[in-house]
Design a protein around this nucleic acid. Structure first.
Lengths: 203, 203
DNA sequence: TAATCAACTGAACTTGCGGTACAGCAGGCG
DNA sequence: CGCCTGCTGTACCGCAAGTTCAGTTGATTA
């Protein structure tokens, strides 16, 4: 274990930034080691191959995102006991958080890898899959609780609604990325929020 | 111009299918020429470089998608004069159409290129951008007309609402791709449809 | 029949990247 | 002092992918 910020962590930090900016394939190992200031041998000491790096990045990213969601919706829940209002507050937080990111938004590693799945081994693809399924489960659970307290105005598939959170975020990230406009992700989350509010608020 | 289905078209047909399945980077020129049954020189006779292929694919894809939207919402409008109901019918058509695609869904070239923009020159990225902006304009116009006939229940940014159509579709494509589940895209479009209905229907 | 030209062939070239081999070095431990 | 372990640095390999180009073919025209 090195003291001066663990080499492994520094590799992952730069790699993550680069992957989000340019994609995984366009991030070469040569470039990583040059930037981090280590040798190629050093890289392969820490990661058996490039797939191992991808897996480590995904795991860390997903864990961070999970913690973020945990924290964010827990805080929202503290502000309002009602599950619907907690969700609305949480989505507001999320929109603000994504809007406050200085240079656009880090993007989503999951989406970045989705369209390049040919490059990755099964382990990486499965990780990706598990992450999306866990988000579905998380939000589905929250919507279920909401639906029990406030019967929805329209019959709705809770799985699809759960997926919608991930889907809207992922889709908005694509738009923001292509357009180069700030605030797209936040705007889309607020649309979703309005939908949730309309769907579950009594007429 | 050759008769037996133009070589250029055959290149583009295979390349499009492959790009949608595996991504642009993973679609090698070697593979294209082997499948189409021409030589490498033949490829570069038709396309100056790989970027030229990307541009041609995007142009064709966007034109096809525009025609599809034109046709689909025109048919919907014929069924119902009211812009809101025409939109709802159109979204239903869209969901069915995407669900009927046999092996999953062709995916969206725009999204496929979004996370690999480092590979492409400015022309390709601009094309991508223009496509999304034109969809924004299209749907924004439709929502504007709807809003004039049915005042929305909540204040809403029409640009963001216009983007939401593209965004939900793109996001759902990512999910469907990663999950390997059929029907995700259709389900997400139906969620969007419910949102539109709730937003503009009078209480 | 000869010239022309688009459509293509085939092979060679270039570059860059993932990955390997291996020698070297710091430092804790006996 | 020597040895072992954990790590670094250099040099190199193989290969795959994009690109180039001189040349061939076959239909069309003069």
């Amino acid at each position: 274990m090195n003291k001066p910020t663990d080499t492994r962590t520094r590799i992952m930090d730069y790699a993550e930034a680069s992957v989000l900016q340019k994609g995984f394939e366009a991030t070469s190992i040569d470039e990583i080691v040059a930037t981090v200031g280590i040798s190629k041998g050093g890289f392969f000491y820490h990661f058996k191959d490039k797939n191992a790096l991808a897996r480590a990045l995904l795991e860390r990213y997903i864990a961070a995102e999970d913690r973020l969601y945990d924290d964010l919706f827990a805080r929202a829940r503290e502000l309002n006991e009602d599950p619907l209002h907690a969700m609305l507050i949480g989505l507001k937080f999320l929109a603000e958080l994504l809007d406050d990111m200085p240079n656009g938004h880090p993007g989503c590693v999951v989406a970045a890898t989705a369209y390049q799945d040919r490059l990755f081994d099964k382990g990486v693809c499965d990780l990706n899959r598990d992450a999306i399924l866990s988000w579905r489960k998380r939000f589905r659970g929250m919507f279920q609780e909401i639906a029990e307290a406030h019967s929805p105005r329209e019959a709705v598939d809770l799985d699809a609604l759960g997926d919608m959170v991930s889907g809207v975020v992922e889709g908005a990230l694509v738009l923001e990325r292509v357009l180069g406009e700030r605030g797209t992700v936040a705007a889309q989350i607020l649309q979703l929020r309005t939908y949730i509010r309309l769907l579950f608020s009594s007429p």
